[in-house]
Computed example of a mutant assay.
Amino acid sequence: MTVLQSFRTTLQVVTKTPVLVAFALTFGLMGALNNATGLVSVVGAILVLFGSPALIGAFYTVIDGARPGSDTDLRASTAAQRYYVSLLGASILSGLVIMIVALVVGGGVVGYIGFDRIDAVLNGSASLTLVELAAAGAAFAALAAVVYLFTFFDTAVVFDGKTAGGSLSRSVDFVFGNLRHVVGYAVVATVATSVVDLPVLWLVSLDGATTVAGAVTAFQAPMPAVDIAVLAVASTVTTLVGRTYKVCFYRACTDAVPGSDPDAADDEWSV
């Protein structure tokens, strides 16, 4: 019951703790600036890199304190300072690892399909075969798996006191130690956030494109202020639900006896 019970706890925490919206909105605004063009985009990228660690430390601490039965009494401002260096280092390390994996996986797909074929697909003059689509899908699945291996580095820093490097290994241990739970969490989290993300991505970021070429053109075009505002609102909603769910799920797994030891065999999650 860990997967769905954690989501129910998430809804309780979100509805009874309005201050969480302020944290989520800040994330959304930084992401919106990062999606802009020119100097604004540069400023947004800097804010995301150096502002997120402080926000995560404070945000996660407030979420944890709002959980039913929680005895957390750490102040948000204290958490923002205490975990900043480790969260910054861990985010950089995980980003580098994921980028390297993405380059290797992406390079393999490009090498298999061929640069000219991919260029033709992006230009709308060709389409991928079923085999090529399968190869691209397998590559995407492999990259997504790697991303999920490190996705709990931030909770490992805030709740387990891990350093930058230690948080990555702790995240991997947590995923394998609670594998069935994590699979269920991934499904629920993806569905919950996609309800907002996918329509906004298609209608706003891709301008309702129905072809690959149209999507590429829309993605490369400068984004108007109204669209940036819509992205900020959507990001606020998904951040509020997604990050609260991550904290509730992680705490539920580490507080429970079967999942408290990352090396122990995990029990099955059920719906």
Rank of each mutant, 00 (worst) to 15 (best):
A192R: 09
T193D: 09
T193S: 15
T193V: 15
T193W: 10
T193N: 13
S194K: 04
S194A: 15
S194H: 03
V195C: 05
V196P: 06
D197T: 14
D197V: 13
D197Q: 14
D197P: 00
L198I: 13
V200A: 08
V200N: 02
L201V: 10
W202M: 05
W202S: 01
W202C: 03
L203E: 13
L203C: 09
L206Q: 07
L206A: 09
L206W: 08
L206N: 01
L206M: 12
D207Y: 08
D207Q: 15
G208W: 13
A209S: 14
A209L: 09
T210P: 09
T211N: 12
V212Y: 06
V212R: 02
A213I: 10
A213Y: 07
A213R: 07
G214K: 03
G214Y: 09
A215W: 01
T217H: 11
T217Y: 12
F219I: 02
F219W: 13
F219Q: 11
Q220F: 13
Q220N: 15
A221P: 01
P222T: 06
P222R: 00
P222N: 05
M223C: 01
P224E: 07
A225G: 00
A225M: 12
V226E: 15
I228T: 06
I228K: 00
I228F: 02
I228S: 02
A229N: 06
V230H: 05
L231M: 11
L231A: 02
L231P: 02
L231R: 00
A232V: 00
A232G: 14
A234D: 01
A234M: 02
S235A: 12
T236R: 01
T236S: 10
T236L: 11
T236I: 08
T236D: 05
V237Y: 07
V237A: 12
V237S: 08
T239V: 09
T239R: 04
L240T: 03
L240A: 04
V241C: 04
V241Y: 02
T244F: 06
K246A: 12
C248H: 00
Y250A: 07
Y250N: 06
A252D: 11
A252T: 11
C253Y: 03
C253I: 15
C253K: 02
C253E: 10
T254W: 09
T254N: 09
T254Y: 10
T254A: 11
D255G: 04
A256Q: 03
A256H: 05
